[in-house]
Design a protein around this nucleic acid. Structure first.
Lengths: 343, 343
DNA sequence: CTGTTAGCGCATTCAC
DNA sequence: GTGAATGCGCTAACAG
């Protein structure tokens, strides 16, 4: 059992209230420099750490924030959590991480649990713009920042990555290599990033004077390697003459690898493939995947900073949403198209 | 701001203490069934949830457990956390997850933070048997259970998977396909699982009457795909005539894929490769990896159950450590060896 | 079975 | 600048 404040005060020869003032950043100036020193020394000697329950009871704040994610095993979340954790823990906050399994009823239950824990704020990585869910479901619990996924309310504080930029970089790279028949394996329209990337894909081609052929786009019902295999397989078999593919994300790109192999084609010699996210392991597959690199750790950190800002100044109006830049990591899944008749 | 107990009591027409008794599982029997009903109805109507800080202050417990892991991006941890979370949250506990980045000073800092938070227990997934670290560093903070890694103290409550079983399954599979020259790319001896798997590898070969040739074992300094590429590369170039490889884990197996490809060989036609862990994505690489499947979620769940057991009965002596069984997932990276002269 | 009383450890009044 | 008093919301010990 750790030391109590009263013990520290006794050792320092002051009243507990004075010790409290000396130890707390905000009230330290109301105490003489001399006593501050004495109290700190005593606290150190006794290895004092304030009882968060007692403090919380009087301050009505817990110094905890809830982080809601869909599925921890999706590789984008660990770095994101790392980013969140870095800034929250540096500020004396503890992150309570909650896995919803992408199940809405489970999410509601976990939100309730976080509310019961009296979290000071929420970082939500599960909202989707197509979602029926009202952002107030989260905001009613505590101040919240959305990350990775866009919430239905466009004014809610949100940290996204620049999907448009990423797609433009990818398309630019492929075009620079001579590709003109660039397919897109798109995600389901309920996912906000899926529609954003699809739109950017069209834009990017258009801007470069390349025909935007609807036959080059397939939309998956769900996001998985299998769905990618199936989707690209259809495209390949349709005789649309594709030489390059922009996949919705890396997992889908892996599925595209499979579709290519199944038809006796080779990547990148016959078909170039670009992924999205640069998830853990994208450098280990064969061929190593060219992909849009998203700095999820930075996104988590930014979301946390934004949230802590809101908590430190509850009166201020909510911060502006931000969209972080991305980069292109060129590996070995892209190459110039074969000469001659494209298939 | 949620309702307080006193408000619930007022609405139910009883004293707050009675309301408390009615709401708490353990003391419910000290209250008439009738009042229990009234109180519950009132609580529900006011959407009451107890203030954990207030409760914690008097019970001296927080209903939180700390979970210490090295690096969230290592794919074994997410399912493990999922297992922990499933059982802790069902029991009304909240898991505080901490990332040490495999850095000892950082780990000490995070342990201190968990202690400051007054966690009731600890689940530690970073200990290694070769570690200089005394298990008391953790145990002095709170009751602790070790998982995945064996702590220096063999008597400390620990949940491991059966490395011996896994290796035996893998070797058995390879031998059944006709392999006799089976290499092992081993992890560094500081890692307890590395030595366990190496020992089991020797045992398994010996038991099947196959020569245990030291030339078929390479030990890596660190665990990475690159280290695997380099290690297997040496073995392949040494002319030891290997037809199959058991890699320390899946990541290393991916490195082995690369070594094989670099030499113009093919897996599984020329060299069979078996991984270990069955991490997320092992079915997506080419060829899909045959690997020992470890149920990390089950391990996390078991560790959590063990810890909660210790917390519910502090007097009892610590539970016995367990070693969970594993299975072999056969995919396409293994096949019978080529006929004729092995290289 | 229920009400009364007390106190967990701390921050924050209000006096001095 | 410092000490004294108060109360955050809850459970536990003691009466009745």
């Amino acid at each position: 059992m750790p030391a109590r404040l009263s013990e520290v005060a006794a050792l320092a020869g002051v009243h507990p209230a004075t010790a409290s003032r000396a130890l707390n950043e905000a009230t330290r100036n109301k105490v003489s420099a001399d006593t501050v020193l004495k109290v700190r020394r005593a606290a150190e000697q006794l290895n004092y750490s304030p009882n968060p329950a007692a403090r919380s009871l009087v301050t009505n704040r817990t110094s905890t924030v809830g982080v809601i994610i869909g599925d921890l095993t999706v590789p984008l979340f660990p770095p994101l959590l790392r980013g969140v954790d870095d800034v929250t823990s540096a500020a004396g906050y503890t992150a309570l991480i909650v896995n919803t399994d992408n199940d809405w009823s489970r999410e509601l239950a976990r939100i309730a649990a976080l509310q019961a824990r009296r979290v000071d704020g929420l970082i939500v990585a599960t909202a989707t713009s197509g979602d029926q869910a009202d952002p107030r479901i989260w905001s009613s619990v505590a101040p919240t920042v959305f990350v990775v996924r866009a919430p239905a309310d466009p004014l809610a504080p949100t940290v996204l990555s620049d999907d448009s930029m990423g797609v433009h970089l990818a398309v630019e790279h492929l075009v620079a290599q001579g590709h003109r028949r660039i397919a897109h394996v798109a995600g389901p329209p309920e996912i906000s990033t899926a529609t954003a990337r699809l739109r950017a894909y069209r834009e990017a081609l258009f801007e470069r004077g390349i025909e935007v052929d609807p036959a080059l786009v397939t939309t998956m019902d769900s996001i998985s390697a299998d769905a990618g295999t199936e989707a690209l397989g259809r495209l390949l078999d349709s005789g649309a003459g594709v030489t390059a593919v922009l996949a919705f994300n890396d997992i889908v790109a892996y599925g595209c690898y499979r579709a290519v192999r199944q038809r006796g084609l080779r990547c990148p010699e016959d078909i170039s493939i670009v992924g999205y996210s640069d998830m853990n392991g994208a450098d280990l597959v064969a061929p190593p995947l060219t992909t849009v690199h998203v700095d999820h750790q930075a996104m988590g950190a930014e979301a946390a900073r934004m949230l802590l800002g809101m908590l430190s100044d509850p009166g201020a109006r909510p911060p502006h949403s931000v969209r972080l830049p991305v980069s292109l990591t060129v590996r070995e899944s892209t190459a110039p198209p074969r000469q001659g008749v494209p298939r």
